Amino acid sequence: MSIQHFRVALIPFFAAFCLPVFAHPETLVKVKDAEDQLGARVGYIELDLNSGKILESFRPEERFPMMSTFKVLLCGAVLSRVDAGQEQLGRRIHYSQNDLVKYSPVTEKHLTDGMTVRELCSAAITMSDNTAANLLLTTIGGPKELTAFLHNMGDHVTRLDRWEPELNEAIPNDERDTTMPAAMATTLRKLLTGELLTLASRQQLIDWMEADKVAGPLLRSALPAGWFIADKSGASERGSRGIIAALGPDGKPSRIVVIYTTGSQATMDERNRQIAEIGASLIKHW
């Protein structure tokens, strides 16, 4: 058993032996400061991975655009179909130039040979490839079927209504393609630790998130040596930015963190910096 498999397999085991986890309101002070700095709403939640207890939250039940963070949920739905014998990670999917949409750094290189379902999930999560996400959405029946999958998990909040890139429109008060921090954190925890997916599929999902290559300026920039993080970021119109993550010290995840912001006029660099500073406060007061 690899170190990674050891880590995921023991998450339920550690729940019975973990020390009490204490919240630190200092992080919420930073979240509120980020709102002031960005001139935008910020949603935040910090969840204990083992118990599911909410440690801190700010606007946990307000809607925010999901942006590309939905791609983790999408690959969770794909893995659920794999577990049920309805899909194979090794199945190759062929597509054409007409299928390519904006920001497809991986799929645009494989027009001649296509990509496997496994490769598409990797591209969608680690590189946020939009065509990969659309191709995967097609395999499960489209955005409405992803919403149905989430409903069956008990998440009646999170919804996907459109495809890439239209889902990134982020119109104020538009509930399409949105979630709430509390709903996203709970759903992510179920995917990573619950019985919905097999152990192998849970491991695969967290491996893809751990290999994320496009979230460096966010929480990863504040991470001390030896800490673990598996994450997925997102960005969209109207100053929207977000990240969902499982992270913790000693090389294993122990908390879920979800951060969303929307409605800012700030630059992408400034949005990144504010999220990184929230992460730094979280780690300092861990």
Rank of each mutant, 00 (worst) to 15 (best):
I3S: 14
H5C: 13
V8I: 15
P12K: 11
F14R: 02
F17C: 12
C18R: 00
C18V: 12
P20S: 12
P20T: 09
V21Q: 03
A23T: 06
A23V: 14
H24A: 10
E26K: 09
K30V: 11
K32N: 07
Q37A: 14
L38W: 07
R41S: 08
V42S: 07
G43E: 01
Y44V: 04
Y44D: 01
L47R: 01
K53Q: 13
R59G: 01
P60I: 08
P60D: 13
P60V: 08
R63N: 04
T69I: 09
L74T: 05
C75G: 08
G76A: 14
A77G: 07
S80Q: 15
S80H: 14
V82E: 04
A84L: 12
G85H: 11
G90K: 10
R91E: 03
R92D: 04
H94S: 12
H94V: 14
Q97V: 12
N98T: 14
L100M: 09
V106D: 07
H110R: 09
D113M: 09
S122N: 12
I125S: 00
D129Y: 00
A133R: 05
L135N: 00
L135G: 05
L136M: 07
L137K: 00
P143A: 03
T147N: 12
F149L: 08
H151S: 15
N152I: 10
W163R: 06
P165E: 03
N168V: 00
N168Y: 02
N168I: 02
N168K: 02
N168H: 03
I171R: 14
N173M: 12
E175Q: 12
D177Y: 00
T178L: 02
T178F: 02
T179E: 00
M180N: 13
P181E: 00
T186P: 06
L192A: 05
L192W: 06
T193A: 14
E195A: 09
L196P: 13
L197A: 01
R202L: 03
R202Y: 03
Q204A: 11
L205M: 08
E210G: 09
K213E: 12
K213H: 10
V214E: 04
A215K: 05
S221K: 15
S221L: 08
A222E: 12
P224K: 04
P224E: 04
A225H: 14
S233C: 05
A235G: 09
R238D: 15
G239T: 08
A245D: 01
G251Q: 08
P253G: 06
S254G: 10
G263W: 07
M268S: 06
D269H: 15
E270R: 07
N272D: 09
N272E: 07
A276H: 11
S281V: 14
S281C: 11
L282A: 07
L282P: 05
K284I: 09
H285Q: 07
